[in-house]
Amino acid sequence: MADDSIIIIKNLGKQYELDRQPQYDSFRSALAGALTAPWRRLRNKLTLSSAKPRSLWALQAINLTIRPGETIGLIGPNGAGKSTLLKILCRVTTPTTGEIVLHGRVAALLELGIGFHPDLTGRENIFLNAALLGMPRTLRQARYDSIVNFSGIADFLDIPVKKYSTGMYVRLAFAIATHLDAEILLMDEILAVGDTAYQQQCWQRLTASAQAGCTILLVSHNPEVIRRLCTRTIVLTQGRVLFDGPTPDALDLYHKILRDSQQPTGTQN
């Protein structure tokens, strides 16, 4: 059962330390902190006060098993840990507890056009961005024409991207991203851009990837996006999995959470 899964997440947790960082932000205060540490420890022992740094568990006790070819939606209110989960999956940041096993190459799109340099031309940015997202050279050469075609900016390839319209910029970025050929595609809120015709194109591209066996993990605030693409949806709240199952049920639950949070306090308990 576990053998045919592509992503296995066991007891994953991510803790951010909130107090410690600003406190030690400057060298001087770190030095002062180190010098006064024995005194503080002594005082804590005497007063028995637990002066542990205040911390925040952005994710806690996450257990998920994802099979190849699944398209999974990830929804939840702001601060639920959706983006943190994707960041850990693509190794931008490290977990505090737990373990993840990935059976396949990961392509992550935490932001469209990340790594684009405004002063470089479209053509130059295709090469830079493709290398950045881990596309091997042979693949890049094979896909170059397809990327240009899909983005529809063939006439503007030699113009710096800072002169592009937002639409052009996004189309180029999306074109590169969806030509990566990874087994696992992680996307954070990137479909909310472009005109309708282009969005249609993106849908098709994503659906095609999914049909080709690509595993997709999609973060979105847009229920329509989730409804159309995902069969299974995970609802995260306060760093924990609240629900993991069929998309319609997940969306119902999500709407209920949103309604509850909009209501003034007092109705709870």
Binding site: R91, T94, P95, E99, I100, V101, H103, V106
Partner: peptide, 8 residues
């Protein structure tokens, strides 16, 4: 397929 393991 090569497996990538992510740990603390």
């Amino acid at each position: 397929r090569s497996a990538i393991v992510i740990r603390p």
